[in-house]
Design a protein around this nucleic acid. Structure first.
Lengths: 129, 129
DNA sequence: GCGGCATGCTTACTATAGTTAGCAGCAGTT
DNA sequence: AACTGCTGCTAACTATAGTAAGCATGCCGC
């Protein structure tokens, strides 16, 4: 399984380099825009490194490329899954006084196991702030 | 500038943990499925590390979560796409979600990213029964 | 000729992603 | 009680992502 990653990196690097040249940017200019170092960008473009998600996003922003495109080049998004795009602004009612745990427990669409899992996550989130 | 990355990692980790528990998998089981080490998965789920693109894809495959969903949780894709677990059709007549989602959104102990993650998990639970 | 000032690249280093070995707790068996 | 066998987690290590300093080339004005 650790096979196709080399070519993936190469393809991603070539793509980034092409986009950079298309925008008439030098390595140093892109480096400054992305708060990255220019040698590293050079290495990424030549396929010597696999950039992290953070770096990928910085680059996609700087080059005006959609993150999806870059990810597809990076091999993460293989094909295309239909997306529901439920950007729901549907309910903004601020149910005041009802706490989240109670609402989860009262939910009829979840099994007990699911409720437990969800509440575990919820509590771990609270703990971490 | 390593500012919002902490919360991003936490939200991503919580999301992964929730999906894993939902699938009734132990850390070791998921580790074997993804060819990763179980301690590392543990650390990722607790937000101590930011997984790479490669790891993200392995996890998304193992958990039947679309890569987009995981990436959105990781903060790369800004959009909010609901996860399509290749199983859509089970419908539930009792509209369960409104109270729980509202309660989560109204919770003052969570950041927006965390709320987002929690609701995504919640919806995927509803869909996966 | 020389001196700046770009370009991309190499080397040597630091920070973090990821692994291997092992620990502590909990449930079920005999 | 002690023994399995499971759970998640900690610690110490290795591998790789990412940085700082500097090199080599090419181009332009003097």
């Amino acid at each position: 399984m650790p096979e196709p990653w080399d070519t993936q990196r190469e393809a991603l690097g070539a793509f980034i380099r092409a986009r950079r040249k298309l925008a008439n940017l030098s390595l140093r200019q892109l480096a400054e825009m992305t708060s990255l170092s220019n040698p590293y960008l050079s290495q990424v473009e030549r396929g010597l490194h696999q950039p992290s998600v953070r770096v990928l996003k910085l680059i996609s922003d700087a080059l005006n490329v959609s993150a999806e495109t870059l990810l597809a080049q990076a091999g993460l998004l293989d094909g295309d899954r239909s997306s529901a795009t439920t950007r729901s602004g549907t309910d903004r009612s601020t149910a005041p006084g009802v706490n989240a745990e109670a609402a989860i427990l009262a939910d009829q669409g979840l099994t007990d196991e699911q409720k437990n899992a969800l509440i575990t996550v919820y509590r771990s989130m609270l703990r971490s702030v």
